[in-house]
Amino acid sequence: MNIFRLFGDLSHLAAIAILLLKIWKTRSCAGVSGKTQLLFAVCFITRYIDLFLHFVSLYNTEKVMKLIYISASVFTCYLIFFKFKATYDGNHDSMRAEFLIVPAAGLACLINTKFDAIEILWTFSIYLEAVAILPQLFLISKTGEAETITSHYLFAQGSYRALYILNWIYRYHYESHVDTIAIVAGVVQTILYCDFFYLYITKVVKGQKIVLPA
């Protein structure tokens, strides 16, 4: 474990907590893409499937973190699609999730480190996570704005994988460890946030709201 990975995971936990707080406090999921949250839940379940297969006692923080990620993302989907369904902005959350899931599944079958079920599921979850934020960014471009709290969520979510890139550089240099699939997907994922990062740093940090040119 190195500082970049630690802060990456903390940033990821912060993003999940910020979103849950926003929905719970405002009792509304306006401006939040339910599809992105569904895709994240699929990512966690397919990536941490080993938790279900051979459940081992929660002997380390990693198992606890995986359970937190899975339960928090499923709970977020429950809030969006059930509890606060009336506030879900369905007609703006219109990016076709199939256009993300099918290519990720296809690519996972073509490019992977080992052709076995668990490895393919892990690879699928890595590819899917890289593009899972697209429906959320698409929704913001459709509505033309993002609530400040949602911007903080996106900043934390984007920073998590950006910090992981630093973690991979660190591990390559000091541990000669390299996981090419995770690195390439993580770089793609972070690049997708660049436009948002620019808006966040030039606007939200100065207290303005993000309003996209309509």
């Binding site: 990975r5 995971d9 990821h12 990693e62 973190m65 995986k66 990620y69 480190t113 892990w122 992981y164 973690n167 541990e175 000669s176 460890h177 390299v178 996981d179 090419t180 995770a182």
Partner: peptide, 10 residues
């Protein structure tokens, strides 16, 4: 060298 162990990151 690429040490291929099971993916040990979240």
């Amino acid at each position: 060298c690429e040490m291929h162990e099971s993916h040990d990151e979240l």
